[in-house]
Computed example of a mutant assay.
Amino acid sequence: MNLRDSTPVTIDDQPRAEHAHTGAWVAGILRTRIADGQLKPGSRLSEQALATALGVSRNTLREAFTMLAAESIVRRIPNRGVFVASPGPDDVREIYNVRRAIEPGAVLWGQPSEDALAHMAAIIDQAHRARDAGDITAMADANQALHKAIVTLTGSRTLERLMERVLAEMRLIFHAMASMPDFHSHYVERNGELVALLRAGRRQDAAERLRQYLDVAETELLGHLAATR
């Protein structure tokens, strides 16, 4: 695990709770912040500061940490604290196993309404602008948004919640690829091709293209991790 930043991370723009919130509520906030790239791998999460900022007890925060640790999103280190995780090769393999089980099925059997397809097309436009500007973070943001939109096609809140966990872990992996802009830029085109197939009603082709896409991405990520560790 790469503990690049020992400065405790706090959340100071969350509304304070007016009543006792659950560990799941706190875990959801932290998970979203990780998926959005606001909490980075190796960052230490300050128990005292977070409990104060969110208006919850330390016991509630510890419950949230336990949930996130079970999802491999944070790591507990005895006598040091809780840190945002830095996923390794086994984590990458597990994430892509989950993605292969969910995303092609969402493409094949989901309900792509005109609004949903228009939303995806807008994400692709955003990705192209980010690529032209050389904005790696914005390319990663667009990629996350597109794959979230794909799972939303299922209409299943359970799968959407699972995908939120997956996207949080993916964001942590993307940090490892920050020095490789080509990794993100060529997926802009792959995402565009996928949306074009969906808009053409070619769901079977889109599902197969997505399976191939996920295989390629997993191999590329594992190769990069092997070269840098």
Rank of each mutant, 00 (worst) to 15 (best):
K148R: 13
N59E: 15
E94A: 15
L159K: 03
A142I: 01
G110W: 02
S72R: 10
A116W: 05
A118M: 14
V92Q: 02
H147F: 12
A122V: 00
A116R: 10
T154C: 05
G55D: 04
N79E: 13
H119L: 15
N143K: 02
G105W: 10
G88V: 06
S72E: 11
S156Y: 05
T60P: 15
D90T: 11
T66N: 13
I102V: 14
D90C: 05
R62Y: 11
Q144C: 12
N79P: 02
L54C: 03
L159E: 06
D91G: 02
R129P: 00
L54V: 01
R157N: 05
D135M: 10
A133E: 06
M67W: 08
A133S: 12
S156D: 12
A142N: 01
R131N: 01
V82E: 07
A133C: 07
Q111G: 01
L146M: 03
L54M: 10
A138I: 05
Q126H: 11
V56E: 09
P78A: 14
L153C: 00
V151E: 13
I95M: 12
V84M: 06
D132K: 10
A145M: 08
A127S: 10
A138T: 13
E114L: 09
M120A: 15
Q111P: 00
R157C: 05
A106P: 03
I150H: 07
E63C: 11
L54I: 06
G155A: 08
L108V: 02
A64M: 09
V82C: 09
V82L: 06
Q144E: 08
M139V: 08
N59F: 13
A118N: 15
T66C: 06
D115P: 03
T158S: 07
K148L: 15
A121N: 09
R80D: 11
E103R: 00
V107H: 00
H128K: 14
L68T: 11
R161G: 05
S113Q: 04
A142H: 05
G88L: 09
Y96A: 05
L153K: 00
A130W: 08
R157T: 12
A85Y: 11
A127P: 03
M163N: 14
R76A: 12
A70K: 06
F83I: 08
V98W: 14
L54Q: 00
L61V: 11
T152M: 09
L146P: 00
V84E: 01
R157M: 07
L159A: 11
